[in-house]
Design a binder for these strands. Structure first.
Lengths: 147, 147
DNA sequence: GTATATGCAAAGGGTTTGCACGGTT
DNA sequence: AACCGTGCAAACCCTTTGCATATAC
């Protein structure tokens, strides 16, 4: 686990609690987790922890820069530790499978957004939707709005 | 309005109803609208229309390829007519403002996803998050996960 | 000792569903 | 006449909030 996680919290005026440690460890162990999944993981060690605590803790851990979240679809967001390699989620709208791609593949796109639109992009925050190899062609041409 | 909207519905085995016409017109008039906003627009002409009808109708209109939706943030999705020019939503995570960029700016990114990951991308489906020009620098470096 | 964090329960937004009625075909 | 679509209300998922209690500092 990130060795100075407690420092990070203290620096920002937050207290160190077992719940905060457990949630952070759960996120790191799961690598990808929704609040609900994180709760279940935490409850393997501490069954008394509450869902609302998980929500509040995820917010705090994100505030201090220990974790991030990404929106993969219509449902709950997915949390990651920041020491995970930055990646993009590719979601197939036909079969629903989620795969990952390294963040660097968006490098030129991100640079273009910066130069042409003065916009600094967090490319991993929102998943990319479309259709994966094995489903190719299932969506009609005009339903899949490619460029 | 798309002149053959009723044909489209009939072809797919759906019936023509006043509600479906009104919802489609509302989406076209608003250009960007959440289900709630679309309901309000529809109710300007037909106050009896129900929210659940709007949801069911949006699903049908999307099925037959007359509209699409995009996820802009944590809240409700935004619906567009498909004859709108394909565009990407840029959301500033600091000030919350949403701007649009032409879909073509993602062309090389989309082509790379296709060649390297065999993934056919619908780039407009999910907004792109980051920080806009006027807010630049407010987010800490490690909070804004750029590449 | 004091302020912050937690657990619990209730409320909130957004969306879906079951059912009886009404409208389209 | 048969079936599909609608309105209404209830249920649903995910998340936030108020409040009393417990805990870190």
């Amino acid at each position: 686990m990130n060795s100075d996680w407690d420092q990070r919290l203290r620096e920002h005026g937050f207290r160190i609690t077992p719940q905060r440690q457990l949630v952070l460890e759960a996120v790191e162990r799961l690598r990808h987790g929704t609040p609900e999944e994180i709760l279940i993981e935490v409850q393997r060690t501490a069954s008394g922890v509450n869902l609302s605590t998980v929500y509040r803790t995820l917010e705090v851990l994100e505030d201090v820069g220990l974790i991030t979240h990404a929106h993969i679809g219509h449902g709950a967001p997915t949390y990651h530790a920041v020491d995970e390699e930055l990646h993009i989620h590719l979601v197939c709208d036909t079969c629903g499978r989620v795969s990952s791609a390294p963040g660097e593949i968006a490098k030129s796109f991100v640079e273009q957004l910066r130069s042409d639109h003065a916009f600094v992009t967090d490319i991993s925050h929102m998943a990319i939707h479309g259709e994966c190899e094995s489903c190719f062609g299932v969506l009609g041409e005009d339903l899949l709005r490619s460029i």
